[in-house]
Amino acid sequence: MFELQHITKQFSDKFVLQDFSFKIAQGDKINIAGRSGIGKTTLFRLLLGFEQPDSGTILYENKALNETSVWELRKKVAYVSQDLNIGRGNVQAFFDETLSLKANLAHKTNSKAEIKQYFALFELSEDLLSKNIEELSGGEKQRIAIINALLLKRTIFFLDEITSALDKVLKTKVLDYFLQNPEFTVLYISHDNYLPSGVELKTLKLD
C-alpha cells in the first residue's frame, strides 16, 4: 500500500530520517516507536505530503506520491494528530463542518445516529454535542477527534498519540477498536506498549 524508499529528511543540521526504507501492506498494524523528537510525527507528515523528503521516494499503491496524488491520498487516510488544536466552537458544528467538506458529503446522511453510537462506545455524554470544543478536557477532545476521523469511513489510519489523555480502560478500548479490525491499516504512535490479543503487531523503530 505504502512504500518508503531511501527517504532522507533533514531539519536544519539534524537528520530525522536517513536512507530510510519501509513497506506498509493493507491491514498492517504498525506501532511507530522511538524516543521523542526522533521524527515519528515527521513520518506522518511525509506520508500526508505536509513535508517533502530531501531525497527518496514514497510510493502509494505502487505510484510515486506527487502533488496531485497527495490530494487523493488525503481523502483515503484518517489522521488524528496529537495536537489538540482541532478548531473552536460547538462540537456538533465541528462534526457537521467535517462532513460538509466536498470529499465527505456522502457520509453526512447517517451521521447523527453514528455519532450517537460512537459517543456511547467511547463513553462520552451526548451533552457534549452542544458544548464548545474549548470547554472540553484533553481526554474529551481526543475522543472527539477520534470520532471525527471515524465518521469519514476511511480504512487507513495515522494515529499520533491519540490515547495520551485517556485512562487505562479507555486506552485499551480505543486501541482495540482500531487494532482488532482486520480491514483497517493502522500506523500509530503510542507510548503505552499495549499488546492486543490475537493481533499481529509490527514495530517500526526509529533511532
Binding site: F50, R74, G87, T98, A103
Partner: peptide, 22 residues
C-alpha cells in the same frame, strides 16, 4: 502559527480553499 490546524483540515479531505476558509 496554526499550521497544524490547517494540516488537520487538509487531512480530513478539505480542498485548499475549504481548509483556508476558517
Amino acid at each position: 502559527k496554526d499550521e497544524q490546524l490547517y494540516f488537520y483540515k487538509l487531512s480530513l479531505g478539505a480542498t485548499k480553499y475549504e481548509a483556508l476558509l476558517h
